[in-house]
Design a protein around this nucleic acid. Structure first.
Lengths: 207, 207
DNA sequence: GCGTCGGGATGACGAATGTCATCCGCGCGA
DNA sequence: TCGCGCGGATGACATTCGTCATCCCGACGC
């Protein structure tokens, strides 16, 4: 069984975490980290240049988030499978990661010993999903927000006034208030800030 | 030069990052990770039980934040030096970490190769501070917020109404509005949500 | 053809919020 | 001793916000 080692790409905006994950995975004889990037929009080029088998993608990244990067990978480098890694919670990300073509979804507080195994499973063509997260994802369900409601919530996440949001979204102030009201009703928040928090915690604010 | 290896404690709430850092640091011959914890309130006991030389403390942790954990370490295990690790920015954390007795302060996007060196320096009794972060810290300066103003902002960070904040802080609603107004003036925010964001980005919301 | 849904907008109204002046008591430095 | 800052509070006021009804338009489904 002297197969070629599985070629890995690490994408995470924190260099320390990236390097540490590289050290962890390089300990495995059948894995080798061939590329590291700190931005989502560098993923596709690196995956192509280094003939990457499996890409580990963090969700929070500048340039392009991990889910969008997974979609771009599927489109441009179909031989590369992707495994999305994220912080705890955010069950809404799971469904969207799978829709984007990710083969696996791992939260950052799973034991380190399981990561290499997840990589191997993904490389073999299997799907890897934390079962606990899967049920949570089903419980939360898909986003109830409409596209504009999400836009307005994103614009509101900076904490600005209605006038600020209206300028950012090119909408009337009254319309902004209407969308905010609708978003608050759908999220159950009693304040726009609470609505932003709830939507963010459920992963409903990404593109 | 066959000294005893430096005995390390890792404290980070994300098990994957913890394990990865352990793998990274265990590659160094003169370092050995002897304990890992996922909560700040387990740091002191672990440092004592495992005769830890240097503790790597993440700032964001349940139970006790990394800065408070550094203070507790200095009080109860003075032989153990602490190196605080955190995500980018938050220059306000630096001053408070040093005040709490931390010997070093490293941001998570420093290259992985530098971490082991930082650990060695701290163990030798030197201070380790990212110079870029130091000037940023001086620029931001110390928090202009008074203690109650901070309390109110923390209570407001959930996005609740004034009544919620008043209940949480055992203050009158009018008083809450006064403190919010003062905090908004000092942070430059035009909304309470904006004030919360600005204060959080500057690291002014910790204990 | 008609009902429904989403995007966009207007106007009105009550409640919540932000601002300010003012008051009290306490501790602390000059 | 006096002033000043901070904690805490009250009351008034203008603005903003959240809610709702209502309207127009285009796209779908049936």
């Amino acid at each position: 069984m002297t197969d070629q080692p599985i070629r890995l790409l690490l994408a995470d905006d924190q260099a320390l975490v990236r390097g540490a994950l590289a050290a962890l995975l390089d300990l495995e004889a059948d894995l080798t980290v061939v590329a590291q990037v700190g931005r989502g929009d560098e993923v596709v080029a690196a995956a192509r240049d280094y003939r990457v088998d499996v890409a580990l993608l963090d969700v929070e990244m500048p340039g392009l988030d991990g889910i969008a990067a997974a979609a771009a990978l599927r489109a441009h480098v179909p031989t590369c499978r992707s495994l999305v890694v994220t912080t705890f919670g955010r069950p809404g990300y799971l469904r969207r990661a799978l829709d984007a073509g990710a083969s696996g979804f791992v939260v950052k507080d799973t034991p380190a010993e399981q990561l290499a195994d997840a990589v191997r499973r993904v490389h073999r063509g299997l799907r890897v999903v934390d079962p606990e997260l899967a049920v949570e994802s089903l419980a939360v369900g898909t986003s109830p927000l409409t596209e504009r409601e999400r836009d307005v919530l994103v614009a509101a996440s900076g904490g600005g006034t209605v006038a600020d949001i209206a300028r950012a979204t090119f909408l009337s102030e009254g319309t902004v208030r209407n969308y905010l009201s609708a978003a608050m009703a759908k999220t159950g928040g009693r304040t726009r800030a609470e609505a932003v928090r709830i939507a963010d915690e459920n992963g409903w604010l990404l593109a």
